[in-house]
Amino acid sequence: MARVKDDYRSLTGQEKAAIFMLSLGDEHSGKLFEMMDDEEIREMSQVMASLGSVSSTVIERLFVEFADQLSSAGSLVGTFDSTERLLKQALPKDRVSNIMEEIRGPAGRTMWDKLGNVHEAVLANYFKNEYPQTVAVVLSKIKPDHAARVLSLLPENYAMEVIMRLLRMEAVQKEVLDGVEKTLRSEFMSNLARTQRRDSHELMADIFNNLDRNTENRFITALEERNRESAERIKALMFTFDDLVRVDQAGIQILLRQAEKDKLSMALKGGSEEVKDLFFKNMSERAAKMMREDMEAMGPVRLRDVDEAQAEIVVVAKQLADAGEINISQPGEEDELVF
Rank of each mutant, 00 (worst) to 15 (best):
R3H: 11
V4L: 12
D6V: 08
S10W: 02
Q14E: 15
I19V: 13
S23N: 12
S29W: 03
K31S: 07
E34H: 10
D37F: 03
V47R: 05
S50K: 15
L51D: 06
S55I: 04
S55W: 06
T57A: 10
T57F: 01
V58G: 05
A67M: 11
D68H: 10
A73S: 14
G74Y: 05
L76Q: 14
V77E: 09
G78Q: 08
F80K: 10
D81M: 03
T83M: 09
T83C: 07
E84Y: 00
L87W: 02
K114T: 03
L115K: 01
L115H: 02
V122S: 04
A124P: 02
F127Y: 08
N129S: 14
N129I: 00
N129K: 12
S140C: 04
A147S: 13
A148Q: 14
A148E: 14
L151N: 01
L153Q: 08
L153M: 15
Y158D: 00
A159M: 08
A171W: 01
Q173A: 10
D178R: 15
V180T: 09
E181V: 15
L184F: 10
L192R: 07
R194I: 01
H201M: 12
L203Y: 04
M204V: 15
N210I: 02
D212Y: 07
R213C: 03
F219G: 00
T221W: 01
R228H: 12
E229D: 13
E232I: 04
E232F: 00
T240E: 03
D242C: 09
D242S: 14
L244C: 05
A250R: 14
I254T: 11
Q258L: 03
L264I: 10
A267Y: 09
L268F: 04
G270P: 01
S272T: 15
S272P: 08
E273F: 00
E274S: 12
E274F: 03
N282A: 07
M291A: 05
R292Y: 00
G299K: 09
P300K: 10
R304H: 08
D305A: 08
D307N: 15
A309W: 10
Q310I: 10
Q310L: 10
V315C: 00
A317Y: 03
E325A: 09
I326T: 04
N327Q: 12
P331I: 13
E333G: 03
E336D: 13
L337Y: 14
L337T: 07
V338D: 13
F339K: 05
